[in-house]
Design a protein around this nucleic acid. Structure first.
Lengths: 152, 152
DNA sequence: TACAGGACGTGGATGCCATCGACCTGCGAC
DNA sequence: GTCGCAGGTCGATGGCATCCACGTCCTGTA
């Protein structure tokens, strides 16, 4: 991970569809060199994939909520995690410090669906209670942080 | 947005670097047709961009936290939002229902940086108070939800 | 110092891909 | 019926991805 790798990562975080030729121009290397560097970033796990950033409303997922989960003291967090993984509505799952072990961000189409999801969660073995907060709007999401100083 | 558009969106959400030729094969259209569809999805705002999914730790952002912000009753949420936008550590910003108007997910390198960020937030005009929860680990993030039934 | 080996780069070659333009076809409005 | 358009297909062409042979610069070792 030298400065060029960091630059490549930043470029791809901003636009994952840049061609290797374009990346090469931006970092001042040849296309094969960039190809190899990016390949290494992928296989070393630095770059985990490439995702289109899609407006959730456009695909019928207009309701976003954050749900905190308190787990029962008797259960194993890993087991609960595996049960949570089964629920496709859960877009991200953090294991938290604090009483509420998990914090989920979920995406559904309607409030009715959200209600059903909450009921299902509360019935899930290991879940003691949940607390839901609804996002009225996303001001921005997954904004890539620019590298420290824009090296000029 | 017909079924083919949905399929394209799903494919790109899973792998944003698929070639148009490959997308075309997957959906049973010609490459130029897919090219045009994707272009329309982009210009209509359904597809907002393409992002490499990068391991935050690998780029020195190993600390993730969620911060709820209570705003002062006298201030305008839009003004506060603009101030928040200036802070590059804030990766996503939701406007929430409830007393805590904003929920931020932030990413920094160290706990010390997190502390500085919290101080800065609390000094920001319009911020009445904040509450921070630290994510010990991300079990998964931004998992793309598969389309309803995998149409066979 | 001399030298072997590896990491990393370049340049050329080759086949695939992106993208344009010409043209076809089905459908709704009139 | 037929005009006009939305949305396809196909063919051509230039650029890109990717492989390979080779150069260069470190670095460890005798």
């Amino acid at each position: 991970m030298d400065a060029i790798d960091l630059r490549l990562v930043e470029l791809l975080r901003t636009n994952a569809r840049l061609s290797f030729a374009e990346l090469a121009r931006q970092v001042g290397l040849s296309a094969p060199a960039v190809h190899e560097r990016v390949g290494k970033l992928e296989s070393s796990g630095v770059v985990r994939g490439y995702r289109a950033d899609v407006d959730p409303e456009a695909i019928g997922l207009g309701v976003t909520a954050l749900i905190s989960v308190v787990e029962e003291s008797t259960t194993d967090a890993d087991d609960l995690q595996e049960l949570l993984r089964e629920l496709p509505e859960i877009e991200t799952c953090y294991f938290m410090a604090g009483v509420e072990s998990f914090l989920l961000t979920v995406r559904v189409g309607t409030i009715a669906e959200l209600e059903r999801l909450i009921v299902r969660l509360n019935r899930t073995p290991g879940v003691a209670s949940t607390r839901t907060a609804i996002a009225l709007s996303a001001k921005w999401e997954n904004r890539p942080r620019p590298l420290s100083p824009p090296a000029e």
